[in-house]
Amino acid sequence: MSQPQVLSLRKPAFRHLDLQLVIGCAILTGLGLTVLLAPVISPFGPWEITGNPYLPPLSDAHLFGTDMLGRDVLSGIIYGARVSLLVGIVSALAAICIGAVVGGFAGYFGGVVDDILMRLTEFLQTMPGLGLALVLVAVIGPSVWSVVLAIALVSWPSVARLMRAEFLSLRSREYVLAATVLGESHWKIVWTHMLPNALAPIISVASLKVASAILTESTISFLGLGDMNNISWGMMIGMSQDQLRNAWWMSVFPGVALLLTIIALTLISDGIGRWLGGRRQSLL
C-alpha cells in the first residue's frame, strides 16, 4: 500500500521540450511543403540536363551545382524528397498497423495466441532487418511499392512488442477489470479503454518508425536496388559514389537533406514521447 505521491518533484521541462518539437516540426513542415510544391519551387526537372557537367555549387542557376550529366542537384533533392517521405510514411503506417494488430491480439488474449504471435515476432526481430528487406526487394522486383512492402514487413515486430507490453499492462488495470465485470464487450473495452491509453507510446514510436523507414529506403536506393524510375536521395548519393573525387557536392547535399529529415523526426518522437507519456522511451 503505497501512499500516493502528492509532492511533484519533476522539474517542469516545457520550454526545453517546446524548442525540440518546434525545430522538428519546422523542418518537417518545410519538407512537406517541398514535396507538395516540388513542380513550382524546383528550378528544373530532376532528370533534365540543364547545364554543363560538374558545375560546382553557387554556379549561376545551380545553387547546389550539377552532376556528371549536367543535371541540377537542387532539383534532384527537391523531387527526391517525394520518394523518401512517401516510402517513409506509408511503410511506417503499415508497420504500425500490422504491429498494433498483432501486438494487441497477443496482449489482450494472452495464452496460446500470445505464444504463437510472439514466437513469430521474436523470430523476425532476430533476423538482420536490412538484409531481409534487401532480399525481399530483390526477390519481388524493384519498385516503390516493393520497397514499402519490404520495409513494412521487417519493421512491424518492434511495434508489436511495444503494443503487446502496453496491452498486457492495461489488461490488468483495475478500470479494465471493472469494465469486464460491468459487462462491456471485448470490442468496447479495447476501443474505449485500452487503445486510447496505449496511444501515447505508439505515436512516439510512429515518428521514429518513419525515420528508420526513410533510412532503410535510402540504403536500398543507394545500393541501386530501389525503383530506378523515381529519383530519391539514396539513389543520388549512390550515383555520386564514383564521382567523389570530382564532385563532392553531388553526395554532400542529398546526405544533408536526409540528415535533417531524420533529425527532425527524432526530435519530434522524443518530444511527443516525453510530452504524452512522461516516460523515457528507449529509441529502438
Binding site: 500516493p4 483495475e174 478500470y175 471493472a178 465485470v181 474505449t192 479503454h193
Partner: peptide
Amino acid sequence: LKEARRKIQIVFQDPYGSLDPRQ
C-alpha cells in the same frame, strides 16, 4: 451469464488505477 455477472459488482483497491484516465 452476462445478466448474472451484472448482479455481482466490485470496487477495487487502487483509487488511482481503477478509473479510466481518459473517460
